[in-house]
């Protein structure tokens, strides 16, 4: 599903240049549940945003579903982000002036799906994450756990093959964190590929495999058993 070779990312130019990724080579298979761990500044978030086509690598190659991402133009990248990748963020990133259902509908707006179908799909997805009673609430009126469920529903609305989550439990208490991770576990059971960046070891243990990053380099991996 995902194959990176000698992936590099440099921010800035000349003497002020900082290398965030320094030659990462690894592969993530379809249907895998992977956690990425490492101290802050290890390049794990940069790695995730390159996987998500939010930025382009400075060097190396990245194949997503068999396609070389470096060869895609901006509009094709947008289409990949829209249809094949679902994002979940630490800060949820819901639009506060739209209600819950409208937030979940957003990706479908950019996919050009008609209104009626959008609504039906959004309601179905919110029911799926257990928020059918919150359709017309604005995000600030919801608890952190509920907001993250809305964000997960939004990530799932276009039925993407891959879910990328950047510290999805970073702003949640312990109980809610485990509820969200249980939700990821279910999505994984449905056959989706999931990559979660975290610095919490107990969160990482929901994954089948943990990748450790340090100083922009993929240092080791560990298979989770049980």
């Amino acid at each position: 599903m995902i194959r990176v070779t000698d992936l590099k990312k440099v921010y800035g130019h000349g003497p002020a240049a900082v290398a965030a990724l320094n030659g990462v080579t690894l592969a993530i298979e379809t249907g895998e549940f992977v956690a990425v761990m490492g101290p802050s500044g290890s390049g794990k978030s940069t790695f995730l945003s390159i996987l998500g086509c939010l930025e382009r690598p400075s060097g190396g190659s990245y194949y997503f579903g068999g396609r070389e991402v470096g060869a895609l133009d901006e509009d094709e990248l947008a289409r990949v982000r829209n249809a094949e990748i679902g994002f979940v963020f630490q800060t949820f990133n819901l639009l506060p002036r739209l209600d819950v259902r409208q937030n979940v509908e957003l990706p479908l707006i950019y996919a050009g799906v008609p209104r009626k179908e959008r609504r039906e799909r959004a309601v179905a997805m919110l029911t799926r994450v257990g928020l059918e009673h919150r359709l017309h609430h604005k995000p600030p009126a919801l608890s952190g756990g509920e907001q993250q469920r809305v964000a997960v529903a939004r990530a799932l609305i276009n039925d993407p093959a891959v879910i990328l989550a950047d510290e999805p439990t970073g702003n949640l208490d312990s109980r809610t964190s485990h509820e969200i991770m249980a939700l990821f576990k279910e999505l994984h059971a449905e056959g989706r590929t999931i990559v979660v960046v975290t610095h919490e070891a107990d969160i990482a243990r929901y994954a089948g495999r943990i990748l450790y990053f340090c100083d922009g380099v993929f240092v080791r991996e560990e298979a989770v058993t049980g």
Binding site: L54, E74, D75, A78, R79, L106, Y110
Partner: peptide, 10 residues
Amino acid sequence: GLLMAIGARR
């Protein structure tokens, strides 16, 4: 940034 992440083109 979010809109672009969920599929908005430039």
